[in-house]
Design a protein around this nucleic acid. Structure first.
Lengths: 360, 360
DNA sequence: TAAAGGTATGACACCGATGTCATATGACAC
DNA sequence: GTGTCATATGACATCGGTGTCATACCTTTA
């Protein structure tokens, strides 16, 4: 592959002059410029980033570590929404800068992360982004100082900059809206209680109830998420049945995510219960393929993955250019509630009708 | 960031000795090695790929150009199957070599491709992979000689190495199996007739009929794919209705892809027609999220995206190491038919029953 | 007319690795 | 005792760009 010296010789100038043409960082004579450009085209010259980097110590690279590619569409993950959307946001924001994104996939093995980081450091990335598949706490190897890192959808114990979904606010907004529609008995079928999202959303759930002066009823909250898929559907059946058998049954089922809501649709339908006429249902994630396709379309909270990706890239770029904020508190990104037809104004009569149904 | 000289000074040896420890390409004294390794750990030394590359002219990088990330889960694409699976295959195969994969996403703008290629060339990638979102013909800028390229899911006019799905064989195998189940009147609701996959699959469709001695009936083939989504469903209604109204209606509907099959399920159900008791349905793609979730589970042809990715990476690696085949004929990868419950043995009585249904 | 300043260009060192070659030491064989 | 060879190490050039500095020419201004 042609070098700057080949071009210089072909154009009859010094290498430095070719460099000046490339970078326009000093005046070059009109004729000289023409000759150099002709030589470059002729030889198919492309400058070597490696050589550039040697002097400038700037690689123009940003490293991204994720499992989003290898795990996409595989076995369901706890949040159900493909973390790929985070990549899209990052992609979009980085694409508008003059940086190049290097993506490394963990291939599902988190023990490969240190090796990936090492490879990135060899390429002298100017910043790193780590994307987790769902909102969780992580432990990552320490980086040399001078290489900024942003965590997306996760956080660590040592205060590395992070971008997180505002789960608490999302669930609160959803519940507040459902309450405003007249509902008082709202059931919450949660994801695994061990995950961060469940903790925060449950907080938001209770907060909304509290603000509306509604007592929290533990009988209306149930963890319906298992590793095992078979057992999960059974859990849902049990939870729904037992809640419907309560003296004062719920008028709305909020689900840990849209995939769960889809199952709840099926269970309610099998029970002869109509959504939303008899009972309202809400999800979480705004997983478009589910939420907009279900009938009736599902009310759900947007999990702002794309926006989080954009914010992550922006924050990292700011850190690289040194214009970033000093503090390293997490950036919380909140998504709107999408009000669709699965949640409706509560009407007393339906409750009575329901009781009949469930006792038949 | 520490350099090899810093390490050399700290360990009290020459830079070259440190280099020898790094590469184990010449004997180093036991004590010296220990001292050097201690210094490297102490300083957090990571060798610079750029400097390495200057001498060796080997970057260890493979460039991948795709739109799979930015377009994932967006508006449906013609094949319906996320091309992300191709990336997974590539990822897996490259991960087992000592190369690093650089992924660049076009962000949906194909005019960005030349710029992405240029960036890759600046990084002196040792090979390029281009992944198209569905089986099609492409035109790409010419590369400097010495940089091998593999096209996946697409081909060009100048015979660049390519990896393609064997659409013709897939459809032929499917139809042959359906014929073996006793069906004689098989309808084919195709994707846009302008796309390559449709051309090849239609060939396979006719081939299977021919081999079974069944006459091809143009009335049983219809292009049901539009850019516009609303109109598409209407097209399907029309096609299905008119085919069912034939004197000798089809006993199976083969669909251009699984997404279309899903719609056909809905339409047949609305018509009071049971799948598969009354009519069999088959798809294409083996889009797991659809095929295995539908009731009854959908018989479909696997679109071997993961395998294609693996093959692409392997072929590129072979080209880089010079051990590749000389010829540049496309590599055809075929996927198996997944026989699920949506296609069943044909039984005469249902046909009669059907006629009653559709006339009510 | 000389000083000042902008324009246009080249020589050379440098970035951080590694390849080549030279050198020094000790072990072993003859 | 000396030649041979493997082991162990360092000096130095080199890869392809860019930063620094020097130089030469031309125009403008005092």
């Amino acid at each position: 592959m042609a070098t700057i010296y080949d071009v210089a010789k072909a154009a009859g100038v010094s290498a430095k002059t070719v460099s000046r043409v490339l970078n326009s960082d000093a005046p070059v004579g009109r004729e000289t410029r023409r000759a150099v450009e002709a030589a470059m085209t002729e030889l198919g010259y492309v400058p070597s980033n490696a050589a550039r980097m040697m002097r400038s110590n700037k690689s123009g690279l940003i490293g991204l570590i994720t499992g989003a590619i290898s795990t996409a569409q595989e076995a369901s993950n706890p949040t159900g929404l493909p973390d790929l959307f985070i990549l899209q946001g990052i992609q979009r924001a980085i694409g508008q800068s003059d940086m190049t994104l290097m993506i490394a996939d963990t291939n599902g093995q988190s023990d490969r992360v240190p090796a990936l980081i090492r490879t990135f450091l060899q390429h002298r990335v100017e910043g790193l982004i780590y994307v987790a598949e769902y909102h969780k706490k992580v432990v990552l190897p320490k980086l040399p100082t001078g290489v900024p890192m942003v965590l997306v959808n996760c956080f660590d114990a040592i205060g590395t900059a992070s971008i997180l979904p505002d789960d608490q606010r999302g669930q609160r907004d959803l519940i507040a809206g459902i309450i405003a529609a007249g509902h008082r008995r709202i059931a919450y079928l949660t994801l695994r209680s061990s995950i961060e999202a469940t903790r925060l959303r449950t907080l938001g759930f209770r907060e909304a109830l509290f603000e509306a002066g509604i007592d929290f009823d533990p009988a209306l909250v149930r963890d319906c998420d298992l590793e095992d898929h078979e057992g999960e559907t059974q859990l849902l059946w049990d939870a729904i049945d037992s809640m419907l058998r309560l003296p004062n049954p719920p008028t709305t089922f909020c689900c840990g995510n849209d995939a769960m809501a889809m199952k709840v649709y099926g269970i309610l339908r099998t029970r002869g219960i109509k959504v939303p006429e008899d009972i309202s249902v809400a999800g979480y994630d705004n997983h478009r393929i589910i939420a907009a396709t279900l009938y009736p379309p599902l009310t759900t909270v947007d999990l702002p993955y794309t926006a989080m990706g954009v914010r992550a890239a922006q924050r990292l770029l700011a850190m690289i250019s040194g214009t970033g904020r000093d503090d390293n508190s997490p950036t919380l990104v909140s998504g709107p509630v999408y009000w669709r037809n699965s949640v409706t104004e509560m009407r007393r009569p339906n409750i009575l009708q329901l009781k009949t149904v469930r006792e038949e």
